[in-house]
Design a protein around this nucleic acid. Structure first.
Lengths: 248, 248
DNA sequence: AGCGGTCTTCCGCTGAGTGGAAAGCTGGTG
DNA sequence: CACCAGCTTTCCACTCAGCGGAAGACCGCT
């Protein structure tokens, strides 16, 4: 840019976006120095740009003075149209009403599940997912439900990587996982037991439109109540089917 | 900036933000030309910057090719911490569960109400508010509940302006409105009948922390069922009080 | 084929943006 | 209370990235 940019060809816009990109679910608040480090910008450059973003409320500061995403970006984000969420939300609500359990909706994004919506009540025990958060596919119910309906080549390349292992219950052996996915395809739903978080288990069903899983609907409960899961599968599948019908 | 910027002193960052600012609830999707007009930028400049934003998924395109807020900004927006929403959501959920009606939570932002959260089911009839949307204060239940607890000078200057009149039922005479606000303060809740939208009416209660209304909780239903509103006031006030206690 | 609108590309000028360095702030430690 | 380590803020002279008017491509409509 104008002036002595060390790394030529980097636009101001890309720097601004790099700063925004420094924030993610694992790093929702950062010091200026951390922003500079994570975005790969010189500290003084980060300082100036962050100042402008802050003035516009794109970024804000927490009580401790650390930087966080600001209200203006939240508001802007709400403008992003999301047909899936709009169509599906009433079903999540209904499923929650009839079961009283945490329910959530996720889509695949890259090699992860992205949580798109969630309905929970007061006694919601385990905070497993957050709207907008990402988790790996293989240890989550919704992830398995989605993965099971991906084409072979995709599943193969997913399993070929070294898979994370958040708990001792996580299944990471490619063979066993592939067999589980086959079972999901046959049964039409996935179950997990403490594979992502100790203390919680889940059931999930794919939202199938033209044979492709465009999303997955999941229900999570405390693993103490794991034996109640089978009872929840039917309503879960019903809601997933309802969403699928409304999406088509 | 570098080059022949007509309006000197305008940073690239401010231009990027102006582009983002071109999107709002009333204009969720825009053509490039509209973006340029609304942000006050030359078309070619808008074109270049929009290109970069699009590549980063900060903006996206709808099926018709028009620009909209992209998934990346949605995700980023979800990162914005919001204690009010986190604390209040379970109460909204519970209020919805016990009444089956649309409930929503709003705060004052400038001279408008900003909807922060909303819970609704399948039979939700009237789409009055959207999370992240803004509406004027005087024709909405939550707006009246919030306005009633603002300091005198604020209310005075609010009433001094020419007030919008979305329906024939909207109260805009300063005197009558002031009297209504006094009644809200006495009763602890506000009622509206088709003041914002024909066909729907609402009740709302302030969330009072140290005597200040930090938010308002509202419930909306079809005006055909207006006579059921009084029955809903008690649960509404209970939930608002619960939120207030949890916020303190 | 002409028209009103949109989108895309081009290119030479220039001041906005740059970032290293140095100075200011913390708060913790011996 | 001097010292230090890490974070934040300010400064400034150099320079190339960004600029935007203009020209042209590309619609859909009549």
């Amino acid at each position: 840019m104008s002036g002595g940019s060390r790394e030529a060809g980097r636009s101001v816009t890309s720097k601004v976006l790099a700063i925004l990109g420094a924030f993610d679910a694992a790093h929702p608040q950062l010091t200026l120095t951390e922003v500079a480090r994570r975005s790969g910008l010189p500290l003084s450059t980060a300082h100036r740009l962050v100042g402008e973003l802050e003035a516009w409320q794109a970024l804000g500061r927490g009580p401790d003075g650390r930087l966080r995403v600001g209200p203006r970006l939240w508001e802007l984000g709400q403008l992003a149209p999301n047909r899936l969420q709009e169509v599906a939300h009433p079903w999540l609500q209904e499923l929650f009403a009839s079961t009283g359990e945490n329910v959530h909706l996720a889509v695949r994004d890259g090699l992860e599940v992205l949580y798109v919506d969630k309905v929970y009540g007061r006694r919601a025990v385990p905070i497993v997912s957050r709207i907008g958060a990402r988790l790996p596919m293989h240890p989550t119910g919704v992830g398995k439900a989605l993965l099971a309906y991906e084409p072979d080549w995709f599943v193969k390349s997913y399993l070929a990587r070294k898979l994370e292992r958040p708990t001792a219950h996580t299944v990471t052996e490619p063979g066993r996982l592939a067999r589980e996915l086959a079972a999901v395809r046959v049964q039409g739903h996935a179950l997990t037991y403490e594979e992502m978080t100790l203390g919680s288990c889940s059931a999930a069903a794919p939202v199938l439109v033209d044979g492709r899983a465009v999303a997955a609907l999941g229900i999570v409960l405390s693993s103490r109540r794991a034996r109640e899961l089978p009872r929840l599968v039917e309503p879960l599948r019903g809601a997933a089917a309802g969403i699928a019908r409304a999406m088509a």
